[in-house]
């Protein structure tokens, strides 16, 4: 008997009947309709498909379903219900850090992963933290600024 894959998705226990070699990205978008998870390359290069996997940043296009049995997955849809998200979202709005928006779900999760480890990052640390998330619109400066504002105004959240 071939087993189902069990994991926690945005706080809820779920199962999937997909093959163990399929990409988490496709399952999130197609089966769970979580379309905040974007597909930009399927090669691990762009970060648009970023999720939090057991609390760390991962490219969901690079994750085979069988490896996530028993794991916790958080997408932007789940993260957007948190206070931390609100702090980042307000900061992004202040610096006008969003243009087309395609990179933003992944970018926000990269910022979360960074702040969770390092609540007071320097400019260089921020750039490193988001180095796997490509944005073709903003030139990154507004995003770096937003992370600094979120760190300041959201003090105590991270």
């Amino acid at each position: 008997m071939n087993g189902q894959i069990h994991f926690t998705l945005n706080g809820e226990k779920v199962t999937s009947d997909r093959h163990a070699n399929e990409r988490l990205l496709d399952v999130l978008r197609e089966d769970f309709k979580l379309t905040g998870v974007k597909c930009g390359c399927k090669e691990g290069e762009c970060g648009a498909c970023s999720v939090l996997l057991n609390g760390v940043l991962a490219n969901s296009c690079m994750v085979a379903m069988g490896s996530i049995e028993g794991s916790e997955v958080v997408t932007i849809e789940g993260y957007s219900k948190t206070k931390r998200f609100q702090a980042l979202s307000d900061a992004y709005a202040q610096t006008s850090a969003v243009q087309c928006g395609f990179c933003i779900p992944g970018m926000v999760l990269a910022c979360e992963a960074l702040l969770a480890k390092n609540p007071n990052p320097t400019d260089a640390e921020i750039r490193k933290g988001i180095s796997g998330n490509l944005c073709r619109c903003t030139g990154y400066n507004a995003i770096v600024e937003a992370v600094k504002i979120a760190a300041r105004e959201g003090k105590g959240l991270w």
């Binding site: 163990a20 090669e43 691990g44 296009c61 994750v63 085979a64 069988g66 490896s67 049995e69 028993g70």
Partner: peptide, 22 residues
């Protein structure tokens, strides 16, 4: 299959993986 970051770049549809991450 360890982290998948090489394997998944051109993932084969018929691949059968032995997951090592646990």
């Amino acid at each position: 299959y360890a982290g998948g970051t090489d394997l998944m770049v051109d993932a084969k549809e018929d691949a059968v993986y032995l997951f090592l991450n646990k």
